[in-house]
Simulated assay, not measured.
Amino acid sequence: LGNWKKSHLEILEALKKGKEVVDIQVENALFKRALGYEFVEITKELTDAGLLVTKEVTKQQAPDTTAAIFWLKNRKPNEWRDKRETQISGDIGVRNPMQNLTEEELRRLANGIDGT
């Protein structure tokens, strides 16, 4: 199939355009879901005269926080991604007061013997 698409570029381009249209539709649906929206719910009943609209109710779909988070993490990753990278520069010095003591002096300190 891949080889056939390569040899028929017009078909390959048509497939790509078809995918772009669907991608845009999904993006729009995600955006709409993230913000919330209003819609009309229509109830129909079957009567002797056929299928008749019996009720139209305007409803609201609340914003979806999961859709909003997904949107923001993908559209503004530097501000919304979970993993933050922090760089620290400079020298971190550690002062060891025992650094210049001999092994004998360290043993005395460990055994609680004061050399003074």
Results as ranks from 00 to 15, higher is better:
1 L>A: 15
3 N>F: 09
3 N>I: 08
4 W>R: 11
4 W>C: 05
7 S>L: 13
7 S>C: 07
8 H>W: 03
11 I>H: 04
11 I>Y: 04
11 I>G: 00
11 I>V: 14
12 L>A: 14
13 E>H: 04
14 A>D: 05
14 A>S: 08
20 E>V: 05
21 V>Q: 03
21 V>N: 00
23 D>V: 05
24 I>Q: 12
26 V>E: 10
26 V>W: 00
26 V>R: 08
31 F>C: 06
33 R>I: 01
34 A>I: 05
34 A>Q: 04
34 A>F: 04
34 A>R: 01
35 L>W: 07
36 G>C: 04
37 Y>W: 09
39 F>W: 11
39 F>V: 03
41 E>T: 01
42 I>Q: 10
42 I>R: 10
44 K>Y: 02
45 E>Q: 11
45 E>T: 08
46 L>I: 10
48 D>Q: 12
49 A>T: 07
49 A>S: 12
50 G>V: 03
50 G>Q: 02
51 L>S: 07
53 V>D: 13
56 E>S: 14
57 V>S: 03
58 T>K: 14
58 T>Y: 00
59 K>S: 03
60 Q>D: 03
60 Q>K: 14
61 Q>F: 12
62 A>G: 02
62 A>C: 01
64 D>A: 01
65 T>W: 06
68 A>V: 02
69 I>L: 15
71 W>Q: 07
71 W>R: 05
72 L>A: 10
75 R>H: 11
75 R>A: 14
76 K>N: 10
76 K>D: 12
76 K>A: 13
77 P>L: 09
78 N>I: 09
80 W>Y: 15
81 R>I: 11
82 D>Q: 08
82 D>L: 09
83 K>M: 12
84 R>P: 01
86 T>N: 12
87 Q>V: 15
87 Q>N: 12
88 I>G: 02
88 I>Y: 13
88 I>L: 14
89 S>Q: 12
90 G>R: 02
90 G>K: 02
91 D>H: 06
99 Q>K: 15
100 N>A: 14
101 L>F: 10
101 L>S: 02
101 L>R: 03
102 T>A: 07
102 T>R: 00
103 E>W: 05
103 E>T: 13
105 E>H: 04
108 R>V: 00
109 L>Q: 11
109 L>E: 09
110 A>M: 10
110 A>S: 08
112 G>Q: 02
114 D>K: 11
115 G>S: 14
